[in-house]
């Protein structure tokens, strides 16, 4: 008996898991940067989030009557957990990661029907739940120059708050709240939380995430539209708000690009295909929307960083953007029959 397959009878090698593993690989430089500047806490958070995420995913698949191996095999939950782990402070206690991950996997993903059906980025759902639920734990980042002993790292994970001697407000927070009428350059020089062009340490972590993102772009796993939209809009806003560095200024484009979670957000979070727009220019608009929201909250809002809010708001708008920014189909409209010789 001959087999009847439907055309096309061949397909490109690799599946979802290959895409996801490339994303994971592209995260490695940024993770190493975070490890270098902020200590081994990041690895604990990543491991913890991955563990919870796999368990939650397996449980959810089981409850929904889906094949567990297939669901875990696509590695999508791994990426979700990694992104979430990278956004948590390295010395957050265990319950923060637990709450965030369970929210991400169960509320952010499976409540909507699992992979491919979630309207919002699950990692950002988890992050926002943690940010609102544990405001103190979520803002206790260590100073990039602090060498926290391993015992303290473990103690912090077990639930003890990390002593103040190692923690510090982030560059964006300091820039926003503690300027006290100083010129920008003067202020930056007076505080060791600032680096060459962004936050100290964070600027390099951002640069490494940028490198990882460029790798994904090169591999064709993401397109340039979303990241360019976000970075372009953020940079443009910063340029408009830039007054040459007065005491009232809102920070240069470089500061905004290389501080906080900008590059991680632009190259890894915004580009989550499920929740963002699916059309090329839709992705650009989604990115630009996230960029503008991020800038506004950073400058005028109560939170020091706002990539998560920006991404979630752009997720809201994605279906509408998708509908209105459909590409022109061959043979329709202005291009049909037109010669451009």
């Amino acid at each position: 008996m001959l087999q009847k397959t439907s055309a096309p009878h061949v397909s490109a090698p690799g599946g979802i898991s290959r895409v996801m593993l490339w994303v994971a690989a592209a995260l490695v430089p940024g993770v190493l940067g975070q490890l270098w500047w902020f200590g081994p806490g990041v690895l604990i958070q990543l491991a913890w989030c991955v563990l919870i995420a796999l368990a939650a995913e397996a449980l959810a698949l089981r409850l929904r009557g889906q094949p567990v191996e297939v669901g875990l095999g696509d590695c999508s939950v791994l990426i979700c957990a990694l992104l979430l782990g990278l956004t948590l402070p390295g010395h957050a206690p265990w319950y923060v990661g637990l709450t965030a991950t369970l929210s991400a996997v169960l509320l952010g993903k499976h409540v909507y029907g699992g992979l491919g059906h979630n309207p919002f980025n699950p990692a950002m759902i988890g992050y926002v739940v943690a940010l609102i639920g544990f405001p103190i734990e979520m803002t206790r980042w260590t100073h990039p120059d602090a060498a926290v002993p391993l015992a303290e790292v473990w103690a912090a994970f077990s639930g003890a708050l990390l002593p103040d001697q190692w923690t510090a407000a982030t560059a964006l927070e300091v820039f926003k709240l503690e300027r006290g009428g100083m010129y920008e350059a003067e202020f930056k020089a007076s505080r060791d939380i600032f680096g060459l062009f962004g936050g100290r340490g964070v600027e390099w972590v951002n640069a490494l995430f940028l490198a990882g993102g460029l790798l994904l772009l090169l591999r064709g796993i993401i397109t340039w539209h979303g990241p360019l939209g976000l970075l372009g809009a953020l940079g443009l806003c910063a340029l408009i708000g830039w007054d040459g560095g007065s005491s009232e200024g809102h920070g240069s484009a470089l500061l905004h690009w290389f501080s906080g979670a900008t590059m991680l957000g632009a190259w890894f979070i915004l580009t989550d295909p499920v929740s963002t727009s699916a059309t090329p220019w839709g992705r650009f608009v989604c990115g630009a929307l996230a960029g503008v929201v991020t800038y506004c909250i950073r400058v005028w809002g109560t939170y020091p960083d706002a990539i998560a809010f920006g991404v979630l708001l752009s997720n809201f708008a994605a279906p509408l953007i998708d509908y209105y920014l459909r590409p022109r189909v061959y043979g329709h409209g202005r291009g049909a029959g037109r010669a451009d010789e």
Binding site: D74, G116, G220, A278, T279, P280, V329
Partner: peptide, 24 residues
Amino acid sequence: PPQQPCIRCGFCVEVCPVSLLPQQ
């Protein structure tokens, strides 16, 4: 291979020769 859910990766959008939105 078993069919998995669409993750809207947009690979199909990039290759469609007539600029359709295959995932939609």
